[in-house]
Design a protein around this nucleic acid. Structure first.
Length: 578
DNA sequence: GCCGTTTTCGGCCCGACTGTTTTCAGTCG
């Protein structure tokens, strides 16, 4: 459903970047960026709209509507192609480096003919940037640091992007005659925050129709390997896709094998060997007789090894096998367990959709409750005022219970200042149903000051959830430096939950921090931080991350009935023991 | 390029931070 919207969003964003690089038309670039966001966040499929329908989307006027129509009619937009021809695509990719914007990217291209990240790294090493106006020592260091961050991501792409491509492919292959089963495996199935390549598995008697279909997908740019057992292609977005077709009788063993992780598989194979068995992608066999003892389903394979079926998100050899052998595998939280979203925005601040539309969309997801948490005044660009948020609260109260009896909570996302202070005093905060508080700036405070800052926010009796606690952006910005062990302890003591922000470029907290925080008895909120209706569906990535952190419903406050949640939100104000 | 009006052109979320400069441009949220 959302694919065409995202295609157009990416296209318009690219055009905006190209305009920004060529310069002189700043407001035009802004207009395209705004339209890109609006279309990306639009709840209905824009490929089905005509020009008049498109123009009803805020930020889309005559010119952009025509370009979108042209794109869906011909697959390209002439004026955008012209811009593309003037600026190599690598120049645009330079802008993905933090601290490097359109102006510096253009200077690098015009003065030094640098048009790729690798060339830039080489140029810095060769000290060729030294004489460039506006580039000093610090700038060089910042760029190098940014490139390092990008390389750590190592060509991996965000979970959400991989998921969309994989689901498209699975849908296509599942429709082919003879397909008995089809699924994605690998790190995607384990819901790792980034994915290096896609592993797709098909169970069928004949492989050729599936192998051919993969090579003929519209997204396929290049065929790397084309054989009867395995075919690999590279998509136009540079993602490698490996397809394997197996006999239906081997489905479970193959799925288990290709899901990994490698460490988990080594461990399960060791168990097999000790039991006089041999585990491969074809099945579980008696070592002596070579007889196959299990292979049709994953559960069957695990069972024969003395294990319960292990959710893919736990398969990292982080103790899940030992826990399974002891019969103590946690019942990890699922998307169905989530009763409501506790961190969302509307167009009162930087969201795209009006309150009424967000609430309707939330109700359609079957939530029992839903919190509206727009930004507070300290994020000055959001232009929030006391009057505006009070008027919103009145409207929230009116809508409360109108949709399938879904209860509405009125909250806000506070900004945690450098000293740990927040936007409003206690007597104003008191009347919110809940407050999320997040760090949005001053990322460079020293470790001690940063720790004090967050601890102080946790100690605020009205702060219920610390939003995106590390503020990392995957592949773009490292998390803040703080003593998180101290933060976790204070969260547990004060009844402050930590967010698992489901935005695919955040997934913050990440799985390893969750595992650590859980040890302190911290509670968590899995929230989307949605700024549009489609983003409400990002919840699945937050839930996957929570699973990777071994969380159960008892750990996640927004799986709880409203009564229990409300009691938690009162913090120590209701006489909670210190 | 969009929007909204003051109905046909002028404003477009605004402020802070950083690094390079010596008064400001670029980037970010």
């Amino acid at each position: 459903m959302a694919r065409p919207n995202e295609e157009v969003e990416a296209l318009l964003q690219e055009y905006a970047d190209l305009i920004a690089i060529t310069g002189g038309e700043a407001f035009k670039a802004r207009a395209y960026e705004k339209a890109a966001r609006a279309i990306g966040g639009h709840p209905t499929d824009v490929s089905r709209l005509d020009a008049a329908g498109l123009r009803e989307i805020p930020g889309v006027g005559r010119s952009i509507a025509e370009k979108v129509v042209e794109y869906f009619r011909t697959g390209r937009v002439e004026t955008i192609e012209e811009r593309r021809a003037r600026i190599p695509n690598g120049v645009r990719r330079l802008m993905a480096i933090p601290t490097l914007g359109p102006k510096k990217a253009l200077a690098l291209y015009e003065d030094l003919r640098i048009s790729s990240v690798d060339e830039l790294a080489d140029a810095i090493k060769a000290e060729r940037l030294r004489d460039l106006k506006g580039f000093g020592e610090k700038t060089e260091a910042n760029i190098l640091h940014g490139i390092e961050l990008m390389r750590q991501a190592g060509g991996r792409i965000l979970l959400s992007a991989a998921m969309e491509t994989a689901e498209d492919i699975v849908t296509t292959l599942s429709g082919i005659d003879g397909c008995e089963d089809c699924a994605y495996a690998g790190s995607l199935r384990r819901m790792k925050e980034t994915v290096g390549d896609l592993d797709i598995l098909v169970a069928a008697a004949r492989s050729a129709p599936f192998m051919n279909a993969l090579t003929e997908l519209p997204a396929t740019a290049e065929v790397l390997v084309h054989g009867p057992k395995k075919t690999s292609v590279r998509t136009s977005e540079g993602l490698q896709v490996d397809l394997r077709v197996v006999r239906p009788a081997s489905w479970g063993a193959a799925l288990q094998y290709f899901t990994g992780s490698k460490a988990h598989n080594i461990h399960t194979r060791t168990l097999a060997v000790r039991a006089g068995l041999k585990l491969s992608e074809y099945g579980l066999f008696e070592t002596e007789s070579g007889e196959r003892v299990a292979s049709r389903t994953e559960a069957e394979v695990y069972e024969r090894l003395g294990l319960p079926w292990i959710p893919p998100t736990l398969r990292e050899d982080r103790g899940e096998i030992e826990a399974g052998l002891r019969g103590e595998l946690p019942a990890v939280v699922t998307e169905d367990d989530i009763r409501g979203d506790l961190h969302t925005h509307t167009d009162l601040t930087d969201g795209l959709a009006p309150l009424e539309d967000m609430v309707t969309a939330a109700a359609a997801r079957g939530y029992a409750y839903y919190a509206v948490t727009d930004h507070a005044p300290d994020m000055s660009m959001q232009l929030m005022t006391d009057d505006k948020i009070l008027a919103q609260r009145e409207r929230v109260r009116e809508l409360d219970g109108r949709h399938h009896r879904m209860r509405l909570l009125h909250g806000t996302e506070l900004n945690i200042g450098p000293e740990g202070d927040v936007d409003w005093p206690d007597d104003f905060l008191r009347d919110f149903d809940l407050c999320v508080a997040s760090v949005h700036s001053h990322f460079g405070l020293g470790r001690d000051a940063m720790t004090r800052r967050i601890v102080r926010a946790c100690e605020n009796p009205y702060v219920n959830v610390i939003g995106h606690p590390t503020t990392r952006l995957i592949g773009r910005r490292p998390g803040i430096d703080a003593d998180f062990d101290e933060v976790f302890a204070v969260c547990a003591r004060t009844g402050t939950a930590l967010e698992i922000n489901a935005q695919p470029d955040r997934l913050d907290l990440g799985d390893e921090d969750i595992l650590r925080a859980k040890e302190y008895g911290v509670k968590f909120a899995v929230d989307t931080d949605a700024h549009s209706i489609p983003q409400l569906a990002h919840l699945r990535y937050g839930v996957g991350t929570a699973q990777r952190g071994w969380l159960t419903t008892d750990d996640v406050i927004n799986t709880w009935p409203l009564r229990r949640l409300r009691s938690f939100l009162r913090k120590e104000r209701a006489g909670r023991p210190a």
